[in-house]
């Protein structure tokens, strides 16, 4: 637009697009959900790691009595076990999907080979092995998280 009289409407969803995978309803795009989850778990971990370093510093900062007092609560479903359960679950997803992202982004692999368009016109990277890896990530995540829950709560 050259010298228009009106205002233009900025139409960017902003940070919402990073936390809400349904800002757009793109079909055949589980990678978008993976991106949102990776970003959310990353943000949470960056925040939790500060608390984690602070809490695990208890023996050096305060003393072993305070540590033992905290650890006494680590049985059954308590704040301490819930903290371990969720932190481990978040870390499992971020780590597993991180391996997939390293393969795709850092090594440039698992994204298929360029090909000439033919029906049904599906982009090669969307049917490449990164997609299978993505489903593997979700399945492994569920298994590992359930296992973590078993160890933390039942043990």
């Amino acid at each position: 637009m050259s010298e228009g009289t009106g205002k233009v409407l900025p139409n960017r969803p902003g940070w919402l697009a990073s936390v809400n995978p349904w800002v757009l309803r793109v079909v055949n795009n589980p990678e978008r959900l993976a991106f949102v989850l990776h970003r959310l778990t990353g943000l949470l971990m960056a925040l939790i790691i500060m608390a984690h370093i602070f809490v695990t510093g208890t023996p050096a900062r305060v003393g072993w009595e305070a540590w033992a007092e905290e650890i006494a609560k680590a049985q059954g479903i308590t704040v301490v076990t819930l903290y371990f359960f969720f932190f481990a679950g978040i870390a499992w997803y971020h780590g597993l999907n991180g391996i997939r992202l390293l393969l795709v982004e850092f090594f440039g692999t698992c994204i298929g080979k360029p090909e000439k368009p033919k029906p049904p016109y599906l982009a090669p990277s969307l049917k490449a092995c990164q997609r299978k890896l993505l489903y593997t990530v979700y399945i492994l995540w569920a298994i590992l998280w359930i296992l973590t829950g078993y160890i933390v709560f039942m043990g």
């Binding site: 790691i49 500060m50 370093i53 602070f54 695990t56 510093g57 023996p59 050096a60 900062r61």
Partner: peptide
């Protein structure tokens, strides 16, 4: 800050 805290956790332990 948190690097120092982590270092103290390891060094200052008894």
């Amino acid at each position: 800050i948190f690097g120092a805290l982590a270092t103290y956790t390891v060094i200052g332990i008894t």
